[in-house]
Design a binder for these strands. Structure first.
Lengths: 178, 178
DNA sequence: TCGAATCTATCTATTACTAGGTAGAATCAA
DNA sequence: TTGATTCTACCTAGTAATAGATAGATTCGA
């Protein structure tokens, strides 16, 4: 109720991107989902790049809100929240929005690519803070390794249509902090 | 010389897919690369799905040839060869062909998706054999974790335009086997 | 002369995007 | 309070460009 068409479009576009990718959906697809005409989408988002950029920015902020502060709880708790956020995405049958767009990065408008990169920079810093607190090996390396494993596992689970592939890797990732 | 147009198309298409993805290139792009007309590509590959399927199959076989048998050398050697194959891809400024297509999997023709899945099945079995020999924890889990980290790191390095992200993770991955 | 390989020309569908218009709500000056 | 104006959110109808694909003619080497 009163959600507003703009937010509805953002929600529907996020679903599209997280399953088909930026190049895998059109304004026509989105219009059909939303029950309006394709041309009307341009009223809310002048270009597809504007939509993609807004999508990536919103995703980063939503993700940040979901996982909370890197300093909240024990390092193990924090890492658990991070992994859980990825698991929740998988449970919805989706890929990480920025993970999927990240794969397409060379084919993305610059404005979108920049916003995708910002998501990974945010995650790197967040995880680095957690691993620094945990004092377990090199924090920057652990952060990169964790992020890479989660993104890769999400993709592999999608290809094999088997969520257990992700959950198996996720359990291993959590083991990095006792 | 004498490479044959078909192989040339395969080489050029592989480059396209590994940078832009399956949905990120057209027969027109490919025709321009090869110096022939777009319609002529259909002589060699009736449909784009045929091309994509052939590409993924060829990639798996080439990858298998590059890394050799899982039983060759010490487990550490074998893992080193596996990681080196990914590093070589990165050095060419490319993504893993099946990693990129894997991200797009829901938007791929079935025949292509099946071949992409076969690549991951092959890698899983190969790595599992290596970790089984190394007797380091659960082999299946280690194999999944290794593969996920390498694929994710390749993507992240591409997004950040910083190969060190991959090499950092790669070093960590190799550490799994002394 | 046969057939492999490539061409020209065309098709249908779809892409992102634009132009111009409209119903209705909100705003605001007299 | 009224009437003029402007804004919001959508519409129809189109653009040029591109997509993958096809039919049939042409070229050319063995």
């Amino acid at each position: 109720m009163m959600t507003g068409t703009r937010d509805l479009l953002l929600d529907l576009a996020a679903t599209r991107v997280q399953t088909r990718g930026y190049n895998g959906f059109s304004f026509n697809d989105l219009a059909r989902d939303a029950g309006i005409k394709a041309a009307s989408i341009h009223y809310h988002f002048p270009t597809k790049a504007d939509l993609g950029q807004t999508l990536a920015e919103r995703y980063r902020k939503g993700f940040a809100a979901t996982i909370g502060a890197a300093g909240d709880g024990t390092p193990s708790d924090a890492l658990g929240r991070f992994v859980a956020a990825f698991a929740a995405t998988l449970d919805q049958g989706r890929m990480c929005l920025c993970g999927l767009m990240g794969a397409e990065v060379r084919d993305l408008p610059d404005s979108v690519a920049i916003e995708v990169a910002a998501f990974f920079t945010f995650c790197q810093q967040w995880l680095e803070a957690v691993f620094t607190r945990a004092k377990a090996g090199d924090a920057a390396t652990s952060a990169r390794h964790t992020m890479a494993a989660l993104e890769g596992a999400l993709m592999m689970a999608q290809v094999a249509r088997d969520p257990r592939i992700f959950h198996d890797v996720a359990a291993e990732v959590r083991r990095a902090i006792g």
